[in-house]
Design a protein around this nucleic acid. Structure first.
Lengths: 206, 206
DNA sequence: GTCTATACGGTGATAGAC
DNA sequence: GTCTATCACCGTATAGAC
């Protein structure tokens, strides 16, 4: 161990991330986290009091990564609309690429326990009204579509970005015969595919 | 109890579905399943030997619903291509609507334990090579696109269909301010939105 | 701060009566 | 087939020595 006493906390958190994201809250074992951190169980409780407290740390951090520059994407009016969508997709995909298991983790835990969200929003200082009004006031207007269409637009973009990651076990086996390399190539093409699809959809038909 | 002895098994299975789909394998408790079925724990083991065996029943059934008429959609050449896509989306969405929690359940369990798939394919008699070659040989040709583009097409359709359900806890709160009715309306519009988007994307640009 | 030892409540599974 | 009682184990959490 090169790390000195003080970053024991960081070591534990990293181990907790690995285990919780792989196994989920219910599937994770404090013993496994301790092993992965190279310490023992008692120390976990010394630093984080309980399993649930430790989980909250990991989960909320993961959830934060999920709110990418959604607001940023929409708030900055510097670029033309389509360029901003492109920037958003690129940014979002790169975040997911760096944390490929976070989306499935967050989705799993959130579906088991949706109430967690309320307290998260409060404590993270996120105003959902603001986000939703931005969609109406900025996206809808700039794209020249209705409020409802703007919501579909946002959901479509996020869906197409995230799904190849959360559905990877299934897609990779069925469509790619478990060829990991082919699948990675496929993922690299996503940005272009999504951006072009969205751009085309925003053009008035002719 | 009106049910006679023989459908105890069905009662148990239904209770197991409810609990496993809500809590996942790790989060589910045999006691809770027994309670929900109105019987006691011992009987669960009498009928299904172990928690894992019972889970497999539920999980595989759920997984089957996930392979919608993917093959059907592609195999039948009766309808013109775009009509077939429309039929597929409609059919797929109605399956999900009837089982709205299945996608998140399957995705969660599959990401925790991807190896389960191999044995499932074998036992369900699913030939993944066939599915993947259908995508190349039928979709790509009829749509006049490359093999790789055909794969993106399939993934996009499924992504846009499933995501509003697995991401519901998040989307509903952020974009719809927890307005359930509004969200249901939104879901009803999905078929039209997806079909039109895909149709537009398949048109040669002008 | 870090360890070992242990308490204590569950949890899956089985034995055995009816 | 269905129940009650019980076992063996595991998992979180804490006590207490160093």
């Amino acid at each position: 161990m090169v790390d000195d006493k003080l970053d024991t906390e960081k070591t534990i958190l990293q181990a907790a991330r690995n285990v919780f994201i792989r196994k989920g809250l219910d599937g994770a074992r404090m013993q496994e986290i301790a092993d992965e951190a190279g310490i023992n169980k008692a120390l976990l409780h010394y630093y984080f009091r309980s399993k649930d407290k430790l989980f909250q740390m990991v989960f909320r951090e993961a959830l934060s990564k999920f709110f990418p520059s959604l607001v940023t994407m929409l708030a900055t009016k510097d670029l033309p609309f389509e360029k901003r969508i492109e920037a958003f997709v690129e940014n979002y995909l790169s975040i997911i690429r760096d944390n490929p298991f976070i989306p499935a983790f967050v989705i799993s835990e959130l579906n088991k326990n949706p109430e967690q969200l309320s307290s998260f929003f409060v404590e993270a200082g996120i105003d959902t009204k603001k986000v939703s009004s931005i969609i109406k006031d900025i996206i809808a207007k700039e794209a020249g579509i209705s409020d409802q269409e703007a919501r579909h637009l946002v959901v479509n973009i996020i869906a197409m970005s995230i799904f190849p990651f959360v559905g990877r076990p299934l897609i990779e086996r069925i469509i790619f015969q478990s060829d990991k390399e082919e699948y990675d190539k496929f993922l690299e093409q996503r940005k272009k595919v999504i951006v072009e699809l969205i751009a085309k959809s925003l053009k008035k038909s002719c």
